[in-house]
Computed example of a mutant assay.
Amino acid sequence: MAVQISPSILSADFARLAEAAAAVPNADWLHVDVMDNHFVPNLTLGLPVVESLLKATTLPLDCHLMIEDPDRWAPSYAEAGAGSVTIHAEAAKAPIRTLRQIRAAGARSGLALNPGTPVEPYEDLLGEIDMLLLMTVEPGFGGQKFLDVVLPKIHRARRLIDKHGGQVWLQVDGGVSDHTIERCAEAGADVFVAGNAVYGADDPAMAVDSLRSMAEKS
């Protein structure tokens, strides 16, 4: 799988999201963290902002729903035009139905797991998803320190994906930087969400190139 970089606008200036998107034209995706202050203790943005952002950028949106009722809301993000919509296994009540609705609406379907959630119980869902997202911090806030404890789970997830044909992308999100991306790539991840490492840099586009290069060398 080719390395993909998905800068997270959670670390950008929310008053200048269109400019933040334009600052990373070399990115593969633009990661959008949707938080509802229920599933996670933070409130960010929702569907109206995503719809506006879709009009302001040509980058495909990678929408990560950290919300209490993804079964209700996820299809709407796909219908709006998001390129990828990821729901949390811990929040979904009918994950197979919801994942299929996301795909039916034309988006890639993703399943996210919190750091403490094992990957093995979800092996049977690999055929229903296009991307598996492993959180490498506890979800809810940007700028957290990478949790090394998740690295063995990345290894295990890669083995499961390869066992089933290797068509599922393996994304990591949380604390991804020039200090951690190589270890994530070596463990088997191929899609990398980076917030502060991109938008905290003087040149976000150069940061994207640097992260990509480091991951490709691993």
Rank of each mutant, 00 (worst) to 15 (best):
Lys145Ser: 07
Asp203Phe: 07
Asp130Asn: 14
Lys153Pro: 15
Glu120Ala: 05
Asp62Gln: 05
Phe146Glu: 08
Arg72Ala: 03
Cys184Asp: 14
Met1Gly: 07
Lys153Cys: 04
Asp28Met: 15
Met1Trp: 12
Pro75Tyr: 10
Leu99Arg: 14
Val193Lys: 02
Val32Ala: 05
Ala194Cys: 07
Ala112Ser: 05
Arg156Ile: 07
Pro95Val: 08
Glu51Leu: 15
Ala207Ile: 00
Ser177Cys: 08
Leu147Phe: 08
Asp36Asn: 10
Gln144Gly: 01
His179Pro: 08
Leu160Glu: 00
Ala105Asp: 06
Leu151His: 11
Asp28His: 09
Arg100Ala: 07
Asp202Thr: 05
Lys153Phe: 04
Phe14Lys: 02
Phe146Trp: 04
Ala194Gly: 15
Leu111Gln: 07
Gly166Val: 01
Leu17Phe: 09
Asn114Phe: 12
Phe14Pro: 01
Ala194Ile: 10
Thr136Arg: 02
Leu111Arg: 15
Pro75His: 04
Asp124Cys: 08
Gly83Glu: 11
Ala18Pro: 01
Val3Asp: 12
Pro41Ala: 06
Arg156Leu: 15
Arg108Val: 00
Val198Ile: 13
Lys217His: 14
Ala201Leu: 11
Gly46Arg: 14
Asp178Met: 04
His64Leu: 01
His38Glu: 03
Ser8Phe: 00
Gln4Arg: 15
Leu99His: 03
Val208Ile: 09
Asp203His: 12
Ala2His: 07
Leu30Trp: 09
Arg103Met: 03
Arg100Leu: 00
Leu59Asn: 05
Ala80Asn: 06
Val176Asp: 11
Thr136Gly: 03
Ala74Thr: 06
Glu186Ala: 03
Phe192Asp: 02
Ile67Ser: 08
Ala23Thr: 00
Glu120Asp: 14
Tyr77Phe: 13
Ser11Tyr: 13
Val24Arg: 02
Ser84Phe: 04
Met131Lys: 08
Ala105Pro: 03
Pro118Cys: 09
Ala12Met: 13
Asn196Tyr: 09
